[in-house]
């Protein structure tokens, strides 16, 4: 029995190719690479925790933009808190500067700067002051999107006119503010806040202002804050009036 001649011819070149490939494989000389080896940083370096640097910490930044407000009124002497916005604008509570004769802010590092009263809101416990001279103070950033319930926040103020204190807390939610003389809902913030923190800012974890403290539920240990949305509306000077003179 003889095989197909075509088949044997077809098998021969394949055998030759296989033999050639085998020879090439055996005789192949792979030269080593010349480029230097590179590798990622070891895990212990990548995962190393560097110490917190105070200069960049949120707490420090929050304290820097928060100021102590001293208001000498016609018949009263008021102390409160506030914070600085771009353009030398200082935000505080209306009740901190009632019938103002002379208003001064104290910065965390001991500077005393005179301010004039730009105006007070008629329907909210907010007042805007203006620095009377250039001071190159750190400024706060306002958050435009709504704050979420349960969100972690920082409340900064000068309770009792003492040194600046930073209190950690969280947003409990909102309540109707009309009974408190506010035009809209106000924020309820669970944080240790004392008298003198009025006008102090409430910061989110990104360092943006989400509210302005204006009252305290003493029994519940809850601070009430004007939401930043109301502040943004009152930043328009047309929404403000000049406070009552003596």
């Amino acid at each position: 029995m003889r095989g197909d001649p075509h088949s044997s011819r077809a098998r021969r070149p394949r055998g030759l190719w296989l033999a050639g490939a085998l020879a090439a494989l055996l005789t192949a000389c792979v030269e080593p690479p010349t480029e230097p080896l590179t590798a990622p940083l070891p895990a212990e370096v990548e995962e190393r925790e560097l110490p917190e640097v105070a200069a960049t910490s949120l707490e420090r930044r929050a304290q820097e933009v928060t100021v102590r407000v001293r208001s000498l009124g016609c018949s009263q002497f008021g102390l409160g808190s506030g914070f600085v916005l771009p353009g030398g604008v200082v935000v505080t509570n209306r009740h901190v500067i009632e019938q103002p004769r002379e208003v001064t802010i104290n910065t965390w590092d001991g500077r005393s700067l005179p301010v004039s009263v730009t105006g007070v809101a008629t329907d909210s416990d907010l007042a805007l002051l203006q620095l009377e001279e250039e001071a190159d103070l750190p400024v706060a950033e306002l958050r435009t999107d709504p704050v979420d319930t349960g969100e972690s926040v920082l409340v900064v103020g000068y309770p009792g006119g003492g040194p600046a204190e930073v209190a950690e807390g969280r947003v409990l939610g909102s309540v109707d503010g009309t009974v408190l003389g506010e035009p809209a809902e106000v924020l309820r913030v669970e944080a240790e806040v004392a008298q003198g923190s009025s006008g102090g800012p409430v910061f989110d974890r990104s360092g943006r202002v989400v509210g302005v403290v204006f009252a305290i539920e003493v029994d519940a240990g809850v601070a009430l804050a004007v939401p930043v949305e109301t502040l943004l509306e009152r930043l328009d000077a047309d929404a403000l009036v000049t406070p009552d003179p003596c």
């Binding site: 102390l79 590092d109 001991g110």
Partner: peptide, 22 residues
């Protein structure tokens, strides 16, 4: 941190002195 605490303390004393002066 220590120096900043000192600055804060001095700032508070200064502010209180100004309060008293006022």
């Amino acid at each position: 941190a220590s120096l900043e605490e000192r600055v804060r303390t001095l700032a508070e004393e200064k502010a209180r002195a100004e309060d008293t002066a006022t």
